[in-house]
């Protein structure tokens, strides 16, 4: 009995001594250095987001907002069409080919549906 207890004590002592030699904490994985080495090299880039809010937002579909956006888009397109109206008219032979911005030079009232200056588009 005494002999077996002595053996157990010696084995335990040897195990602890070996662990201390390797610099391991109790129950620490002996291959911890592989992981440590891997993360030591990338520590700087991994800690850049500390104390920050990373924005990973998504666009939620909202029927009302989508309608407003469509309306805004239509207005934008119409505005662009009006800007280049004179230019496009060139292709139909309605104004000078060499002056695409004829509508800017037209200093006369253009009777259109919207009663705007120089917009040579008569019907919308």
């Amino acid at each position: 009995m005494k002999k077996s207890l002595l053996y157990i004590f010696l084995i335990a002592f040897a195990t602890v001594a070996k662990a201390q030699d390797a610099g391991l904490a109790p129950d620490q994985n002996p291959r911890y250095k592989e992981s440590q080495q891997r993360y030591m090299n990338t520590a700087d880039s991994l800690t850049t987001t500390l104390s920050t809010t990373v924005q990973q937002t998504y666009k939620a579909y909202d029927w009302y907002e989508a309608r407003m956006e469509r309306r805004q888009q239509r207005r934008e397109w119409r505005h662009q069409e009006n800007l280049y109206n004179g230019y496009y008219n060139n292709y139909y032979g309605q104004s000078s080919y060499y002056n695409p911005y004829t509508w800017r030079n037209n200093l006369w009232w253009a009777p259109s549906v919207n009663f705007r200056w120089g917009h040579s588009r008569w019907y919308w």
Binding site: T49, L50, S51, T52, T53, V54, Q55, Q56, T57, Y58, K59, A60
Partner: peptide, 17 residues
Amino acid sequence: VIVGMVQNKTHEHIDAE
């Protein structure tokens, strides 16, 4: 304690700070 990253996965811009 150290404050880490907060992920905003909503549909709006929100700063967790």
